[in-house]
Simulated assay, not measured.
Amino acid sequence: MSNRPDAERSKRIMVGLSGGVDSAVAAHLLIERGHAVSALFMKNWEEDDDPGYCAAAADLADARAVAERLGIELHTVNFATEYWDHVFETFLSEYRAARTPNPDVLCNREIKFAAFLDHARALGAEAIATGHYARVTHDAQGAHLRLCADTEKDQTYFLHLLDQEQLAQARFPLADLKKSQVRARARELGLANAEKKDSTGICFIGERRFRDFLARYLPDQPGPIETPDGVRIGEHRGLAFYTIGQRQGFGVGGKPGRPERPWFAAVKDVARNRLILVQDTHHPLLMSSVAHTGPAHWIAGHPPGEWPFRCRARLRHRQPLQGCEILAGDQAGCRVHFDQPQRAVTPGQSIVFYRDDECLGGAVVLQSDCAA
């Protein structure tokens, strides 16, 4: 089994250079290994008139500085149309259905490892690379997506929708490094972005309040905020603006007798347009023992065994892996039974499956069964 399919000979590899430190060091490592490296800066969103939201101009300036420092050619491309059609439209559709999507997962499949891959090939590249923290290995069965050395930064959760063709062409040079080592290498190279803060959240939202951004595309649909026993305690602006497990932003006071206890969003009752809040972080309505998903994507192209089978899963990035059993799975979806009840299983989010250190694939949560 080989951890580096490109180890035998030099390849023409194009790096997705974002302006951040991770992709910069990834490019350097490939140069160090003897590859012919070029870079591509992708603009995936048309900025607002107000500066500071999607800082593409500043990121492009950083990418240019890195390319100049490393002595590599930098190409630029605008994928805003592709992003809107293949990522953002789905993002809005999911919110309209009162679910909470993760656009980064779709962006990786549709933009960074599809549109970018096609563009890189057209420019003569034989493979692409990014600054993701993940590992790919290859054997007779194909490509395998695996956990990287830095468990705190591992990004396989966001890459679980990639397929065999995409992984065969992908390189993740940071697989063996911790983030602290990446920054140290950037300082050694004299890169201006060595201490640049990691990007968080979604580019097109930036520093603004998420609800303010979403309100530009989705109308308010007010409804009651209630306790589990049906007592009305306020009004919400629309179920799309809340997510399961959320603990602020409801505009309600404390419940009599327990004024200091925070409220948590536990149930979005779409049929009655109700938002149900609870005052216990592990209230039964927040805990789920079973998740029902949409159709699963398996990186290998097929499930890893006969049904049912055991594996581990995570419901969000950086969550410790949780033991589970997939009791059923077909074109309609999967039923996942957790060894321990899970908090805030959120419709629209991805559940990603693992066996040992291998990411098997994943699916989108549609609903869950309360542990009570």
Rank of each mutant, 00 (worst) to 15 (best):
N3E: 10
N3D: 11
A7R: 15
A7Y: 11
K11W: 11
M14A: 03
V15I: 07
G16K: 10
G19M: 10
G20D: 04
A26C: 04
A26F: 00
L30P: 10
I31V: 12
E32I: 02
E32T: 06
G34W: 06
L40N: 01
D50E: 12
C54H: 13
A61C: 04
A61S: 10
A63N: 09
A65H: 00
L74M: 06
F79P: 05
H86S: 15
E89K: 15
Y95H: 14
Y95D: 02
R99L: 13
T100S: 07
P103C: 13
D104K: 05
L106T: 09
L117G: 00
A120I: 06
A127V: 03
A129M: 05
R135V: 01
A140D: 12
G142M: 04
R146C: 03
T151K: 11
T156M: 01
D163V: 15
D163M: 14
E165V: 07
A168E: 13
F172G: 08
P173N: 12
P173L: 09
A175N: 03
D176Y: 02
R183E: 07
E195P: 06
E195M: 07
S199P: 12
I202W: 00
G206N: 12
E207P: 07
F210R: 07
P228M: 10
P228C: 09
G230F: 04
V231Q: 14
R232A: 14
H236W: 00
F241I: 04
F241E: 03
T243F: 03
I244Q: 05
R247D: 10
G251E: 02
G253K: 12
K255E: 07
G257E: 11
R258W: 05
P259C: 11
W263S: 11
R274E: 10
T281Q: 08
S288H: 08
P295Y: 05
I299E: 01
I299W: 05
A300M: 09
E306Q: 05
E306C: 02
W307L: 15
W307P: 04
P308V: 14
H317E: 00
R318L: 08
P320C: 05
Q322I: 05
G323I: 02
C324A: 14
E325S: 14
E325Y: 04
Q331Y: 02
C334G: 02
D339G: 08
R343M: 11
Y354G: 01
E358N: 04
G361M: 12
G362V: 04
G362S: 06
A363F: 09
L366K: 08
S368K: 07
